[in-house]
Design a protein around this nucleic acid. Structure first.
Lengths: 221, 221
DNA sequence: GTACAAAGTTAAGCTTGCTTAACAATTAAG
DNA sequence: CTTAATTGTTAAGCAAGCTTAACTTTGTAC
């Protein structure tokens, strides 16, 4: 069993590994966890010894199959807790991340399964992220597109929001956007990469910073 | 904010302070927490510096009002979680203690209040222990008696069971005893201090070890 | 009331997970 | 291709919370 700290490293490595490159840099993880980069180097060695990570000095950190399994387990816990806190206890979108960030480390497999069952074995969390299954498989929605990469004049449905940035969540609440909101792309502004959309018959502009954290799905007409 | 470890010390001190003597001995706490007694001495000094505890070398440890407040806060969390796990998630009597023992340290005040509200601000946990209120007050049942101190021929209702001993819980399950079970005292055996009771029209004998951990209330006829 | 056992304390040391500071490798600019 | 900036690593050190071993106080049996 990894310690709490190790669980957090694995999660962080995972979240930076799924992109183009399949390996996470020291500074990214350091920044993500708000920890000095020397601590990352240190921990990389330990995780490597435990076979959870492949680590080559100066060459980044990569999860092994075992490491990925462990990471998915924590992510599963996190997302199930988030959904539970919102759907059952009535917490708010913006309140659940921090709470789940702690609970994920302190619930037995047994309890997590009970929660999973109670929620009806859900596939997605409140932000639209897939909840890894007990066996490690990951439910996916086909054709997920980043909102910053859509095409003008098409209609899209908002299906996923990056969590862990509660300011973004608050912003969306203010604007009225939420999962399943329908957007029509009016214009893509080249100058600052912002996007102009029609939403509930009102025209609003979303900055690159925002659209880089929202995922949508094309709606067939 | 006390650390997790300190929260556990405070809880342990509390649970040994409410008896006859209002102070807990080093070895009792050490034993209770499965920790060496030197660690207890150490921590006693730290807690004392923080004003949570009164500590005189060789003379035991006593909670200050602030320490008691902190202890009650953790106990409140523990008992609310236990009730929640049983009533909402359907866990078993015997499964909740260990789970709650972890969750109690990692839930915000806010979350605890949500759970409290969800449960309808309950006064007692599944073992019949009072759940301290947010303001620190403790719901009480009048006339709680230890089962080892009852009188022959009276009828009693089982209203509280010491938790943290899952073997006791399993034993009770096997015998069929649970909260609100009605018992008639048939005989008190002086030799081994066991007690013979009528329960569901069957005669069973309960050892001193058992009756020292069960609390009852006299039923008026 | 002494002597010894039991209980409590102190000291030294260990592990985990951090920090800062000094140093090394890599990358990017010209 | 060299150099400077960036990024990563190593080393030393610290705090928390333990441990074991040696020592001190307290309580008890006689």
């Amino acid at each position: 069993m990894p310690t709490i700290s190790k669980e957090n490293y694995l999660k962080a490595i995972f979240s930076y590994s799924t992109e183009l490159e399949n390996n996470a840099s020291t500074s990214r993880i350091a920044n993500h966890l708000s920890i000095s980069s020397s601590a990352i180097s240190d921990m990389a060695k330990k995780l490597s010894k435990e076979g959870l990570v492949k680590y080559k000095k100066y060459k980044g950190i990569m999860l092994t199959p075992n490491g990925e399994k462990a990471a998915l387990k924590i992510i599963r816990r996190h997302r199930l807790w988030e959904l539970f806190l919102i759907n059952v206890l009535g917490l708010d979108w913006s309140e659940v991340h921090d709470e789940a960030e702690k609970l994920e480390h302190y619930s037995s497999d047994f309890l997590i399964d009970k929660i999973d069952e109670f929620l009806g074995n859900p596939d997605f969390d409140p932000h639209g992220h897939p909840i890894p299954k007990k066996n490690g498989s990951i439910p996916e929605i086909p054709n997920v597109i980043l909102l910053s990469e859509v095409e003008t004049n098409n209609k899209y449905e908002l299906i996923r929001v990056n969590d862990r940035d509660s300011e973004l969540i608050n912003y969306l609440k203010k604007v009225g956007l939420k999962l399943s909101s329908k957007l029509e792309i009016v214009d893509k502004v080249n100058y600052d990469n912002s996007i102009s959309v029609m939403f509930k018959k009102k025209n609003i502009t979303l900055s690159k910073k925002v659209t880089d954290n929202l995922f949508v799905r094309l709606i067939e007409e």
